[in-house]
């Protein structure tokens, strides 16, 4: 039968040998992969969106498509706008992760993460429908002129296939992945709240 002092003795006799390092660069890059990964995902995604927007803009001006109607170019511009919106959201998310203070009091630190995940939750609820609507609108406008060169049957097939894909992507794939992501975020928020409560409850 051991009392607490005996446990303390066991603990203190263990030296806790940590790997020696002579420079911070020796700290393994495999660690901090989670926060770093969260940040990098947003940063790389945002840079990708800049390239997409730049490429489509270049196509509008130098692509020599020879479209007759201004609204066809407008639809391409709408896709550029979508890319830029996505980029803005990603940079904003990146800055939010960056702003989390690792040296804050634990309950405040946990609350910052809770707020970040709550923000992600609000974003995915808003982002998916807005993007689906704008993308459908852009493709719809683009098709008016592009499909006018096709025969009725070919044009109908193109419209049906595109519409089916958008509906499938939004109502099946999108909803399913949003549901899964919301479940994941909610469980993280619940865990953080639980730990925060452990710290803040008065006994």
């Amino acid at each position: 039968m051991q009392d607490f002092d005996a446990l303390k003795k066991i603990w203190q006799e263990e030296p806790g040998t940590a790997r020696q390092i002579s420079t911070p660069a020796e700290l393994s890059s495999t660690s901090q992969r989670n926060r770093k990964w969260l940040k990098n995902t947003q940063l790389i995604g945002a840079i990708g969106q800049i390239f997409t927007a730049a490429f489509i803009t270049w196509m509008i001006f130098y692509g020599n498509f020879g479209f007759k109607y201004w609204y066809t170019y407008f639809s391409m511009g709408l896709i550029v706008l979508l890319s830029l919106m996505q980029m803005g959201i990603m940079f904003y998310t990146y800055s939010k992760i960056n702003a989390i203070d690792d040296a804050a009091a634990p309950s405040a630190h946990l609350r910052q993460w809770e707020e970040y995940y709550a923000m992600r939750m609000r974003m995915i609820q808003f982002q998916a429908p807005v993007f689906a609507i704008l993308l459908t609108l852009a493709i719809g406008i683009y098709y008016i002129e592009v499909l006018s060169f096709m025969k009725m049957l070919q044009a109908s097939i193109a419209v049906v296939v595109t519409a089916a894909w958008i509906l499938f992507a939004y109502f099946y794939l999108g909803k399913r992945s949003i549901r899964k992501e919301k479940g994941r975020l909610q469980s993280i928020i619940d865990e953080l709240k639980e730990v925060e409560q452990q710290l803040t409850t008065n006994e």
Binding site: A104, A105, E191
Partner: peptide, 13 residues
């Protein structure tokens, strides 16, 4: 404090 915060948030990771 950093260690405590890192441990507590490691939980969800």
């Amino acid at each position: 404090r950093i260690a405590v915060n890192t441990c507590l948030t490691y939980l969800r990771k």
